[in-house]
Amino acid sequence: MESSEGGRFLRLVSEHGDDPELLEGAVRAARGRSEMVAALPEEETRRHTRALLRGVLAALADGVPGEELLAAAERLGSDRARQGVPVAAFLDGFQAGRAHLVRTLIADGRRRGVPDALLLDGVSRIDEINTALVHRMVHAHRVAELEMARTTREGRVQMLRQLLHGESVPVLAPLDPDAEYHCVVSDVSDPAVAAGLEARLAAAGPALCGLVDGRLAALVARLPAPVRTGPLLVAAPPARPGAVAPLYDLGRRALRAGAAAGLAGLRELAGLALLTVTEAEPDLGGLLASGLLGGLDRDDPFHRELAATALAYLGHGGRIEPTAAALHVHGNTVKYRVRRFQELTGGALLDPSGGTAVERTAHWWWALRHWLAAPGG
């Protein structure tokens, strides 16, 4: 652009620097193009439009966007994110304002006899500035969204920690203080693995998940379908948020017991009751093992095989075929091992009269688990 000719365009630009009609026209265009922008206070739109117009006109005169203009673009993107206006919605308004500016300069320039070539060159420079501003606005919008999401999540996870630790705190969204939730605990500490589990837990219904005491925990309205693979998860019965702390403690105890037993997948807390209690009293388990299994030698592999068969036999309610299937042996092998086990220990695993004998069966189960857990030869 020759300096003499270019001066005509610059004079045109400078005369619109504080043009109230240009400002109000751009404001109307932005609000008319985007419903979400129009829902904001009009002065809010005017404030940003004024700063951007002045900056763009100054950039046309100077040749490059100044830091003040770029900062105004960042403020617009950040403010719209905090106001809940999506990128597409506020960019619609911004581009409408840009179009109004171009139309105004072209129409006024033609009335003044400014050559079309100069006007076209000016529009090209406006588009270059426009691109730089859009990049700044979108980046600032994204940064603000991430900051808000992080702040919101941190607040929610802090509430989860306080509830699980028994602190008295207001119950806020996404939880309902009057609704009931399952407390789910896990031993997962890897954030990447935890994120995958969070998605699975939240897919079944309203949920609040986070790392509590270094491990993933959650309050979920509905449990996902049970599986027996993947990380061990222990789910307590539903309770209101203010009453989940005791269940969280029980769940952590059950988690330790389940992990020691080699369990995996989603498990109900009540189903781990006996395992949890016996795991917490190893000395009693030792006494039972000494009293009931004195005829077995831990250093004898065959005796350990007998004990494992006896434990599986109890676990399958004294039924031969399910026990054999679980151990991948023939049913007669199970019968022989059970008979030999009872000969060595001098006691019947199940009540020979066919009675329930729940307490004695539990004692056998406890003693066998403790005995097998101890190292042998």
Rank of each mutant, 00 (worst) to 15 (best):
E5M: 14
L10P: 00
D19N: 13
P20F: 04
A29I: 06
A29F: 04
A30E: 11
R33V: 14
S34F: 12
V37G: 07
A39K: 13
E43A: 14
E44M: 11
R50V: 02
A59S: 09
E68D: 14
A71N: 07
L76A: 01
A88D: 15
F90E: 00
G93T: 05
F94V: 04
Q95V: 06
Q95I: 02
A96Q: 05
A99E: 15
I106W: 04
I106L: 12
R112E: 11
D116H: 04
L119V: 00
G122N: 05
T131V: 13
H135D: 09
V143L: 14
E147N: 09
E147L: 13
M148K: 12
M148H: 15
R150F: 14
T151E: 15
T152M: 10
L164W: 06
L172P: 00
A173D: 13
P174F: 14
L175M: 12
L175T: 05
L175K: 01
C183D: 05
V185W: 02
V188D: 04
S189F: 01
S189A: 12
A192Q: 14
A202L: 04
A204M: 04
A207E: 11
L211Y: 07
L216F: 12
R222F: 15
R228W: 14
A239F: 08
L247H: 03
L250V: 12
R253H: 08
A254M: 01
A261R: 12
R267N: 03
L269F: 06
G271Y: 00
L272T: 10
L272D: 03
L272V: 02
T276H: 02
E279I: 03
D283K: 05
L287W: 08
L288K: 00
A307F: 07
A307S: 08
A308G: 13
A310H: 05
L314T: 01
G315S: 06
G317H: 13
R319L: 09
T323M: 10
V338R: 02
L344N: 10
G355H: 01
A357P: 01
W364K: 00
A373H: 13
